[in-house]
Amino acid sequence: MKPTLQTLIQENLQKKKKNLFSFLTGAGISSESGLPTYRGIDGIWIKGTQYHKPEEFGTFKYFSKNQEEVWQYNLFWKKLIEEAEPNQGHFTLSEIENLLDKKFQLITQNVDGLHQKAGSKNVFEIHGNKQTIRCASECSSIMLMPAELKSKELTEDLTEKDIELLHCQNCGDWLRPNTLWFDESYNEKLYFLNSTLRAAKKTGILFIIGTSGATTLPQMIAETVLQYGGYLIEINTEEDSYFFERFSGTKKYMLIKERASDALMKIKDMIEKHETIV
């Protein structure tokens, strides 16, 4: 018989090793903030790139030949992010972090910065952040997007000033969004490849929220947690993710069919009620 979620939480709080509570989040947790997901029926890959397949448009190869078009899309994303506010799920995760302190780790595929806006601190952004940029030739470090660079409607052209701001002051090449594209690989410097896998080895419970699991590093994180004796708890209203298909037959996987914000409130209450939190 599988243990209950409350039992798992209690046991993990009592452990001295491999006791991290890790949370892996994807676009689903930000959908309650009005941000579209990527691959859903109303997803941003569908709405924003209607003339291209995501695997074609969301690449460095495409950017290198169509910089203005890609930046139009990303400045539209800038508008969406500026208008979005953290929802209850984001805030509850921040409250859980305050309760657990060093026993907490947040790993997010999201590029919207809403976790930090809600107060989360210990965050690995494994796909980057659309509020930051870097030189396409990699001649400089990560920078904040210039304050003078204004958000755009999807069909709005770049101005001469926009184009000037979007070129590197060091080498003159285009600046690029600091996000992971389909034809790029995870690494430690930009996307915390090694750090997240080290955290996975120390994780007693990995909560998976709002992600289909379509990319390789989230899959590797889940595999590593199981390999080192941890549990996978997926919060998803549907049985349609990679994690469900891959792990639902194992003893250390559990599916909670609830909205992220509702399930996280219950998890927070279970942690609060346990008397051994240090």
Rank of each mutant, 00 (worst) to 15 (best):
Q6Y: 12
T7Y: 12
I9A: 03
K15I: 04
K16D: 05
K17Y: 14
F23N: 00
L24S: 11
G26E: 08
G26D: 09
I29S: 12
S33R: 04
P36G: 05
R39A: 11
I46F: 15
K47Q: 09
Q50R: 12
F63T: 00
F63L: 01
E69Q: 15
W77Q: 14
E82P: 08
E85Q: 12
T92S: 09
L93E: 12
E95H: 13
F104P: 02
Q105E: 12
T108F: 01
N110Y: 04
L114R: 01
A118L: 02
A118K: 11
G119H: 12
K121G: 04
K121R: 14
F124V: 00
E125I: 00
G128W: 03
Q131A: 07
S137H: 14
E138Y: 15
S140H: 09
P146C: 04
E148F: 08
L149C: 13
S151F: 11
K152F: 10
K152D: 06
D157Y: 08
D157H: 12
E160A: 12
E164R: 13
E164Q: 15
R176V: 06
N178F: 11
L180A: 06
W181S: 03
E184S: 03
E184D: 01
N187R: 10
E188Y: 06
L190D: 15
L193T: 04
N194R: 10
S195T: 10
T196Q: 04
T196F: 10
L197C: 10
R198S: 09
A200Y: 02
K202E: 13
T203L: 07
F207I: 00
I209D: 03
T215R: 01
T215A: 05
T216N: 14
T216D: 08
T224F: 00
T224H: 07
V225M: 10
L226G: 08
L226W: 03
L226Q: 10
Y228S: 03
L232M: 01
I235Y: 00
S248H: 13
S248K: 08
S248G: 06
L255D: 08
I256N: 01
R259H: 14
A260P: 07
D262V: 14
M265G: 02
K266M: 07
K268R: 15
D269N: 13
M270F: 15
E272W: 08
T276I: 10
